[in-house]
């Protein structure tokens, strides 16, 4: 038998209005996709605090997906744009920590896009599988160094985090 295939664990944050409904639709339509994604419902992709992503990675997830309504279709009008801004900042920080690009993904999926969401999940699972396990140090609270590093990063990029009026 071949070597056991690496099965990555991916945590996905889905907005209540579009993406979680896309997942519902994928289910209703019996669209099969890889089982490696575990989903968390949030009201809006704008709710996703970058620390959620860090926490998931730190606890052993190999990748994190954030899914929200398409730009212009946000249930809360424009909060997915804020998720988008935050995401690019987060990617920047993660790059500095040596994390591969493909391990975090921002995905737009409308309530009608069950197929698209399933495809995106499959694609991401394959990409993360190819990258292999993340093996981040598991215990954040006992490793002050890492937390401090993240705080330093936030300070360095304080300007980018400012929200224009």
């Amino acid at each position: 038998m071949a070597e056991e295939r690496f099965e990555p664990k991916i945590v996905a944050f889905l907005c209540n209005w579009c993406s979680y409904r896309a997942a519902d639709l994928a289910g209703t339509a019996r669209i099969k996709y890889q089982p490696n994604v575990r989903m968390i419902r949030v009201m809006c992709s704008g709710r996703v605090d970058p620390t959620f992503v860090l926490k998931a990675l730190a606890l052993g997830a190999d990748g994190v997906m954030i899914a929200g309504c398409h730009p212009g279709e946000c249930h809360y009008l424009e909060q997915n744009y804020k998720a988008m801004r935050r995401f690019s900042m987060l990617k920047h920080s993660l790059r500095a920590l040596g994390l591969e690009e493909d391990r975090v993904r921002l995905q737009w999926a409308s309530a009608a896009e069950g197929v698209q969401l399933a495809e995106a999940i499959n694609e991401m699972v394959d990409q993360v599988r190819a990258l292999g396990p993340l093996n981040w140090p598991g215990n954040w609270s006992e490793d002050g160094e890492v937390e401090a590093a993240i705080e330093r990063l936030a300070e360095e990029h304080a300007e980018a985090m400012e929200v224009p009026a």
């Binding site: 945590v11 968390i40 730190a58 606890l59 093996n135």
Partner: peptide, 16 residues
């Protein structure tokens, strides 16, 4: 919720 979702991973990788 994240901790719960990853319960099996956490127990395997030494995380709290």
């Amino acid at each position: 919720e994240i901790e719960g979702l990853l319960y099996d991973v956490i127990s395997g990788n030494g995380a709290k």
